[in-house]
Amino acid sequence: MPRLLLASNSPRRKQLLADLGLTYEVRLKEVDETYPEHLQRAEVAEYLAAHKASAYRDDLQPGDVLLTADTIVCLDEHVLNKPTDADDAVRMLTQLQGRAHDVYTGVCLLTGEGQKVVFSDQTRVHFRSLTEAEIRFYVEKHKPFDKAGAYGAQDWIGLVAVTRLEGSYFTVMGLPVHRVYKELEKLGFGVAAT
């Protein structure tokens, strides 16, 4: 029986896969999320997704499909990963306010037979200017320390600060479901396969 395995504890990724009508199991391992400094933008997200998948390679059985993903926020050429603490989150959000930035989510699908598909999707996000009080309120109330760029588009800050998106909202949430579904269909998953 083919199994879809999600190597992520992200509530957003879990919900998006469930909303697609897919049955999956969660698998978790600690994986180092550093990347070579010469990589830029989409390359970083794809590298991290593939790097995460490689940690599970020996655990996969024939018929398994492992899904890993990584989301990064880029302001100009600077990658904003997950903040280290509240001050770092405030610093990141202060940089983003009143500007447009790019969100990349890289995805890796790895089969038990060794087939690997790696891709990424990009969305441009426009933020309105925020006050320091708004930024601090968000960081204190929502504690966005597990989110690239220190924010979640589905959170309060997304409701009040995101003025426009160019691309998929779900890519910003952490999983470009339109691309993921298409690739999973090729591997035998999807509503037509059930």
Rank of each mutant, 00 (worst) to 15 (best):
M1T: 10
R3N: 10
R3G: 03
L4G: 04
L4W: 11
L5S: 09
L6P: 01
A7Y: 01
N9C: 01
N9K: 10
R12A: 14
R12T: 07
A18W: 15
Y24H: 11
H38I: 09
A50P: 10
K52P: 01
A53P: 10
A55F: 03
D58T: 14
Q61R: 11
D64H: 09
V65H: 04
A69S: 11
T71E: 00
V73H: 03
K82E: 00
A86M: 10
A86T: 07
D87S: 14
D87I: 05
V90S: 06
Q95F: 00
R99W: 06
H101C: 04
H101R: 05
D102H: 15
C108D: 04
L110C: 09
T111W: 11
E113R: 13
G114K: 14
Q115Y: 14
V118F: 13
V118W: 10
V125C: 08
V125L: 06
R128S: 10
I135E: 13
R136C: 10
Y138S: 04
V139M: 05
P144I: 07
Y151E: 07
Y151Q: 05
G152E: 01
G152V: 08
G158C: 03
L159T: 00
R164W: 03
E166P: 08
F170A: 03
V172A: 10
V172S: 09
G174H: 05
P176S: 00
H178D: 12
V180M: 08
E183Y: 09
E185A: 08
L187F: 11
G188E: 04
F189R: 04
G190V: 03
A192T: 02
